[in-house]
Amino acid sequence: MSEILLQIDGKEVGATEGMTLLEAARKVGISIPTLCHHEKLEPYGGCRLCTVEVESRGWTKLVVACVYPVEKNLVVRTRSEKVDRIRKMILELLLAHAPDAFALQDLAKEYGADKDRFEKEASFCIHCGLCVRYCAEVKKKNAVGFVDRGTRREISFIPEIAAKECWNCKECFPLCPTEALQAAFVLTKALFSPPHPGPEPRG
């Protein structure tokens, strides 16, 4: 396969076709923060934290490193002022949902994000989809999925599948960037609450 040369943070990087910017950067030891990325799973681009600035043909644009494929002669900046500002904002928004997540707090310190900037709406889920995708792609059990949309979107286990599969697996718990609280809680709820026809009716 032909080698593609590009520049990341001033470093010349060789990559193969089909690689993402994130993979190319990690290969040469440049770290880009991610929350929804997992090497066993398909790229998802859910958290947008790996946003980087890309320059090609004189134009700069912001792209998500975990889904953007490498191109010839790209100039990538992973820590420009603009990128840091965007990551700070993303972290502040995510912290409104999961204020106690250690992974988020560490990143917040690095980017100077204020966890009290936005009113707390602690759902403990940042919709990274790691548990949902891991269950579907690696375990092929599809015990957990998203339901509803927009601000009401949440993860939900299917009790019938969960009762059979989840006790011996629980592999999705440690994946959670918000310390596994949410998946454990939702699973328990799915298994121990009396059956009802489906998610609560929408208002």
């Binding site: 579907a136 599809n142 999925g145 998203f146 339901v147 509803d148 998610p199």
Partner: peptide, 20 residues
């Protein structure tokens, strides 16, 4: 099609109802 996916779709669109 996995049930999780069907539920995702059925709760996404307002045309569908999961209650009578």
């Amino acid at each position: 099609v996995p049930l999780t996916r069907i539920r995702h779709i059925a709760t996404f669109y307002k045309a569908f109802s999961l209650v009578p």
